[in-house]
């Protein structure tokens, strides 16, 4: 009690400017000491790399020598000459426009089913959520093995049913849909969020709706969806951002489905298998940056990725006012 009062209060005491600075410092010191690590982190691991990356994007840089200013050369290469960057961007786009919405609809469906259940909801939630916890590398290794066209159990089961199974991860037309299956299997994280939101929808709104004679679709359309809109928006945006950086699942699937060990082939020759169908933008960036060691060009790719991600984030920050202010 007493100690608080002994603290000088600038606004009350109105001390001279010098005094005021010192006391402000004294009272603010603990606060800034709480922030210092995080602020250093923002400067060193966020702001500096953003700016440095911009600089590198205008250079020919391989780390063995100093960066060499080449103006827009990397940008010209990216937009007019790099024939694989287009494929890679399209593959990433596929994951953005197919994987993200399908995962959301699927999660919403399961969420709706579970939200209507009165018993054993926890059990079902665990069943659907657990796969989302499995390390992605482990899931991919498992899936690629299960879906191996020659020796995998899935096609073995199909054979027993008299069906010739497809090539799955080895077919350029099916490799992305195969990863979509994996994505659905791992959709539990989205499902849990949706389920919680669905359970929060006020019951009386449903009852009112039912009195009006609304059918199931109308209930969903006019009660459920508007109520969980913030959650849908949030998971759409984080889903898109995650899809923009889609790397691990596709890379590991390529390497394992390929059957090559990469002992004599570089990773760059394994990534994207089959036929570049799984080569995503970030993988191509990785190959350019850390296999070919064209860091300047990789930085150029990063600038473009940044602009796209920034546009997506702008939507979130605009639409969900929740984020824009820290306090007050």
């Amino acid at each position: 009690m007493t100690s608080t009062r002994s603290l000088p209060r600038p606004s009350v005491a109105k001390p001279r400017p010098a005094m005021r600075t010192r006391s402000l410092l004294a009272s603010r010191l603990p606060v800034w000491s709480m922030m210092i690590l995080g602020l250093i982190g923002l400067a060193v691991f966020f702001l500096y790399p953003l700016l440095a990356n911009l600089y590198f994007s205008f250079t020919n840089y391989d780390l063995a020598g100093a960066p060499h200013w080449t103006g827009l050369r990397n940008y010209v290469y990216l937009f007019t000459q790099d024939s694989r960057v287009g494929k890679a961007a399209l593959n990433t786009l596929w994951f953005v426009v197919i994987l993200v919405p399908v995962r959301m609809v699927f999660s919403l469906g399961i969420g709706l089913l579970l939200s209507r259940r009165k018993t054993a909801r926890g059990f079902w939630r665990t069943v659907f959520y657990l796969p989302a916890l499995v390390p992605p590398v482990a899931s991919v290794v498992g899936f690629v093995f299960l879906f191996n066209p020659g020796t995998g159990p899935i096609n073995a089961v199909l054979r027993h049913l008299g069906i010739t199974g497809p090539l799955w991860f080895n077919d350029p037309a099916l490799s992305k849909p195969s990863l979509l299956l994996l994505g659905l299997w791992m959709a539990g994280d989205v499902m849990v969020i949706f389920l919680a939101a669905l359970l929060d929808v006020p019951k009386d709104q449903y009852e009112a709706c039912e009195l009006d004679g609304a059918n199931g679709w109308q209930r969903l359309r006019f009660v459920t969806l508007p109520n969980i809109r913030p959650v849908l928006l949030f998971s759409a945006v984080t889903g898109v951002i995650a899809a923009l950086q889609y790397f691990t699942e596709a890379a590991v699937a390529s390497m394992i489905a390929n059957g090559k060990t990469g002992i004599d082939a570089g990773t760059d020759q394994l990534l994207g298998y089959p036929d570049d169908s799984l080569l995503t933008y970030t993988q191509w960036m990785y190959v350019q940056g850390f296999n070919s060691f064209q860091l300047g060009y990789a930085s150029t790719m990063a600038v473009v990725l940044f602009l796209i991600a920034a546009a997506v984030m702008a939507v979130l920050l605009r639409r969900a006012g929740l984020f824009t202010k820290a306090q007050g």
């Binding site: 191996n148 066209p149 020659g150 020796t151 090539l167 080895n170 077919d171 059957g259 060990t261 002992i263």
Partner: peptide, 15 residues
Amino acid sequence: YRKLKAFTAGLGDEW
């Protein structure tokens, strides 16, 4: 092509 691809995918490691 498809037969080759299915066969190749089920083969053991080269090394």
